[in-house]
Design a protein around this nucleic acid. Structure first.
Lengths: 107, 107
DNA sequence: TCTGCACTCTGCTGTCGGCAGAACGCTGCA
DNA sequence: TGCAGCGTTCTGCCGACAGCAGAGTGCAGA
């Protein structure tokens, strides 16, 4: 019997082992959605927010944990408050088909 | 006229120069509120979440940026999803008396 | 082909996440 | 009064990483 060596746990990328995405993934997706809605480029938002383009790309793709200050700056560059961003992120997170297939009707 | 030397900028603690708290402050406050609502101690939640008591204290008080994984773990220890936590945080952030005194009625 | 855009890779460095041990402050109770 | 319980602060540690810059890649459209 060989010992099973656990592989190094991969960084979650909406891993099937996890019922919901991580915060950085969810908020990043929302930031990208908001940017797309405004038909703006990475460089536009990054410049206004005062961060690098590469970094904003990584934030949007959930690869980096933005500090609260950076989050506020990026949200501000999209004319959003952190509250609005959190609310929209939460709404989108709460909307996917439930893990066990249960459909949740509006209260 | 003496030159005014700017003091080292204090870490935001709902600084009057900022219209809204930072994400870490807001979500920390919400975590504390949820814990209090359950009449639980720091140690109870910290143990279930797998973090230290001191650290949870700092997270709740907005002193540290919890990673998305830690955030999920603490939320889970309070039987919340990240979506629920974000939603509640957002709701509370959006509820304070508006900066210019405008009262916002429920939609 | 070239340009524009987004993304990846590599490397860097100062900051900090998260911890542990120790100590402090406050409250309530015997 | 002393003590226990709870939360917080302080100090120090160290590995991780935020955030950056330069360079390169891939794709789509003109």
């Amino acid at each position: 019997m060989s010992t099973v060596v656990p592989l190094h746990r991969p960084v979650s990328s909406t891993s099937p082992a996890r019922a919901e995405p991580l915060w950085r993934e969810a908020v990043g997706t929302e930031l990208r959605r908001e940017r797309a809605e405004r038909a703006e480029r990475l460089v536009d938002v990054a410049d206004r927010a005062g961060v690098s383009v590469q970094y904003l790309s990584e934030i949007e793709r959930g690869r980096k944990e933005a500090s609260s200050e950076v989050l506020a700056a990026v949200a501000g560059a999209l004319d959003l408050t952190v509250a609005e961003l959190a609310g929209r992120t939460s709404t989108r997170l709460g909307r996917p088909s439930a893990p066990n297939g249960t459909v949740r009707l509006a209260a």
